[in-house]
Simulated scan of single mutants.
Amino acid sequence: MVARRYVLLARTLPVVLLVIAAKIALERLGWEFIDVSPLHASIVGGAIFIVGMMLTGTMSDYKESERLPTEIAASLESVFREGAYVKEQHPSFDLARLAETLAHVPHTLRDDLVHGTTHTVETVERLTDSFLEMDALGVPPNYIARLKQEQAQIVRNLMRVSYIQRISFLPSAYTLVETMLGLLIVLLLFTRIGAPLVDAVMLGFIALIFLYIVRLLHVLDSPFRPAGSGPDDVSLFQIDAIHDTMHTRLDERAGHHHHAGGG
């Protein structure tokens, strides 16, 4: 069984083997009519430069995507802790409703990212009902304002994640890279480099590198995919844990108050 981290390589190898087979066939047919020249090195060097530029730009968005779920989870945690504090000061506050709203976020987040829906933002906006309840209970306005800032930060991060997921980094550059690499492979197919076997091996090596990077660019450009789709999708485990965390803390608080009341 192929290890998860080799999935992308396993998907690329069949195409590389086809390129090698095509090269061997063209050699036997004698259809290699292009001789190696200094221009070949320039073309390969230019391809490496453009692909490197694309990889750098896409990687920066991917790294940001890895950071945003942690920030969202931290904001959700902060809202719950502040709500628990309000519960201590105002026992009639409905902490369970606040916790249920927060716990519902993981249910819709990945589907929103994969399918472009906005159910999670609508869930976060429901926190306003709890803030209004705090206001009615006499919670200081500056305290509620801080919670609203956390709410706005969650929505901002959700929208940023959605943007990264749906918008490609320089789509025209992707077209250039794919076209350029396709033409480069075709050029090398009809180029005589040295001994027939050496030609096929060299072309296979070059094709493997470039085709793998192109596939990697597409993976990095859409970092959120259905759970378990691949080893490179950004993990949402911290946000997924929020669901159980909220209910566990509510149960612990209920048990604590029960024991305190019994004592």
Rank of each mutant, 00 (worst) to 15 (best):
V114H: 01
H90Y: 09
Q149Y: 11
I193T: 00
D61H: 11
T179H: 09
D244N: 06
D233C: 08
A10E: 11
H104A: 13
D112H: 08
R5Y: 15
E133P: 08
A195P: 08
P69M: 09
H258T: 13
A241T: 06
I167Q: 08
H257N: 05
D199R: 09
D94R: 12
I20D: 08
A227N: 04
V51M: 08
V139K: 02
Q238M: 01
L203A: 10
V201N: 10
R4W: 10
R249Y: 13
L98D: 04
S92Q: 11
A41I: 04
R249I: 03
P171W: 08
P69F: 09
M180H: 03
P231I: 01
L26N: 12
T248W: 14
S162L: 04
A103R: 04
L184G: 09
G138H: 03
V155A: 00
V114Y: 04
I43Y: 13
D61G: 08
S172F: 11
A73C: 08
H243N: 10
E64S: 12
T128Q: 05
A227D: 03
A21K: 07
V86Q: 00
P226W: 02
M1P: 02
R81G: 03
D199A: 13
V19C: 03
G228R: 04
A99D: 00
F169H: 04
L216N: 08
V214S: 00
I48R: 00
M159P: 00
A152S: 15
V161K: 13
R249S: 09
P226N: 12
R192V: 13
A21H: 14
L17W: 14
H119W: 09
Y212P: 02
V7K: 11
G261E: 15
L158A: 06
S229L: 13
D135G: 05
E82P: 03
V114C: 06
D199N: 15
V155L: 00
